[in-house]
Structures are given as structure tokens and as C-alpha cells.
Design a protein around this nucleic acid. Structure first.
Lengths: 144, 144
DNA sequence: TCCCAAATCAGAATGTTTCTGATTTATATT
DNA sequence: AATATAAATCAGAAACATTCTGATTTGGGA
């Protein structure tokens, strides 16, 4: 469903539906949490053992440009990627110990006073918001 | 004033007040915008031409641990650093074209519904919020 | 002045991301 | 079904930020 509609979108942009590209999409659709390029690459190697790492990056960048994928940064020294599901705009809660992530529905741009603080002549295109800390499990482990 | 109080703080932590460390602090205090490690290094080279890049990073990490410096990420492929001036908690507005930054006083954590969306058993330590787009000047240049 | 932990230096190493140039492939057309 | 070709892939190198290593120097207390 999502998969097919993305393939269609790619076709209309005259992008080829290569096996590698399809596999990358399937991995992102299956993912329960944002993945690092390295993690995606490792999963793809299982099906395509001769994959080039470069292919992962090229496709992630392409999908980003088409707004099919979001690039995220959780201060880990590398990016993570997630499918951009429309109607599911969200931000993240990130555990600094285990790297676990949870969705935050609250969005600062929906808050009241943002429009007062951003100058009118500044054209806003995107924003980021992340909350960091320690999840229940990791809190326990820290105190023992 | 700020400079002296930081030196004092460093002393009490039994950190040595090396010339390089002092110079790095002065650069951060002078800075009108968050600086990349590379930019800091370039400025330090003028005074200490034999500086090691490593020294910049080591000190930035130290100062970060002591909450004297904030590490920021503006999706540029490298971090930027700014002095953590207490009583001036803020976020940033970032121009995607020129890299210019402006302070945003609004903070999402002060908003209403955050406490409802973060689970109680999650220990929040930090957060990030950035707004990206194009500044007045760069908007003009894009449309011509 | 002496001592030594802390800091620095120089250069190598690590890890992520991008580039290059040759080869392969998806797909539109015949 | 065969062909042409732009797009995509591969393999490896390169670029870049950041961290590490091991030898040397230095700030600051005794």
C-alpha cells in the first residue's frame, strides 16, 4: 500500500525501480525505529551481498529530496533515517544510553508564541525538536 | 568578568589554565555566532601557530562536560559550539543558505503540552529545537 | 626550584559520507 | 523480443570531522 504508492511516485519522477531501491524502501517501511545508514546497509547485505554502501547513501539522499524519507540527528555522530509518513508529523524522545526512540506528538511550531519570535521576513522551511534523557529501563540500570 | 569566573570554575575542578585553553575561551566569549571547531582552530592558529587540532576538540569536550559550552548541530555535517551563558537559554533560527544564525527565545519545554507527551518515567536531561529556512537577504538572492 | 599529573603536540586512526570512473540494468522504443 | 540509453550500481578512493596514541612539555602546588 505505502510501498506501491512510493513506487508510483518514483516512476512519475522517472526514477528506476531497482531491486536495491525496492529493498531499501521495504526496510524503511518495516523499521520500528529510525535507522542509521550503516544499519540499513547491513540489512541489505543479507539480500544483496555485493551491495555498495554508496548505493544506500545515494538512495537515501534521493528519497530525502523527494520528501519520502526524513533525515534525523540524535547527536550520535551519524544520521538516522525514517520514512516520512504523511499525516504523522512527529518529533522524538531519545534515550542517551540505549539509543531507543519514541514518538513525541507535541510540535513546537503548533505552539502559540513561535510566530512572534521568528521574524516575518524569514522563510521557515523546516524545524527540528528532540528531547533527550534516560528511559525507564536505563534509569534503573544507572542507579544500581 | 565571564572570563574570570570561568577560569575560577576551571581551577576549582583542578583543570590547568593553559594559554591555549585561555585563548579558546576568549574566542568563544568574543564570538557573535556559534563556531565550528575548524573556525575556532583557525582563529587560534593566529596566536599559536603550532596548535594541534586535537587540543581544540579536547578542550571543547571538557568545557562541554562542565556545562561551560554547548554543542550545537545545524545539519551542516559538523558541530558548532557556543558559550553556555546562564540565564540565556535559547534556541536557534538557521539560514540554510548563508549559515547565519539568530537566537530564538521561545522554548518548547516551556510550552504547555510537553509534560503530557513525555512519559513520567522518562528522565529528561536536555532538548534541542531549531528552525531552518532562508533569511531576508538569502530570500532575495534566491528569487533573482 | 622540583615534581608530576594534566595538557599538548604530531601524526595516525576511525567512522561517516561523498566522489570517480567503469560497468550494469530498467525501461521506453522499435 | 531485441536494442538503445539514461539512470543506477559497484568498487575503491577521497574528503571530512572527530578521536586516539605515544612521546614531550608545562602549570601550579609542595
Amino acid at each position: 500500500m505505502i510501498y506501491e504508492s512510493i513506487l508510483e511516485q518514483l516512476s512519475t519522477q522517472s526514477c528506476k525501480l531497482t531491486l536495491q531501491r525496492r529493498e531499501l524502501l521495504k526496510i524503511l517501511i518495516r523499521a520500528k525505529t529510525p535507522l542509521a545508514a550503516r544499519e540499513i546497509y547491513d540489512r541489505m547485505l543479507k539480500k544483496y551481498p555485493h551491495m555498495s554502501f554508496d548505493t544506500v547513501y545515494r538512495n537515501l539522499n534521493l528519497l530525502q529530496d523527494l520528501h519520502i524519507v526524513n533525515r534525523l540527528d540524535f547527536q550520535e555522530g551519524r544520521s538516522r533515517y525514517e520514512l516520512n509518513r504523511s499525516q504523522d508529523h512527529h518529533h522524538h524522545l531519545v534515550c542517551l544510553k540505549c539509543g531507543g526512540t519514541w514518538k513525541l506528538k507535541a510540535c513546537p511550531l503548533e505552539g502559540l508564541n513561535i510566530n512572534n519570535t521568528v521574524p516575518e521576513d524569514f522563510k521557515v522551511t523546516t524545524h527540528r525538536f528532540e528531547v533527550f534523557g534516560y528511559c525507564r529501563q536505563c534509569r534503573k540500570e544507572l542507579s544500581t
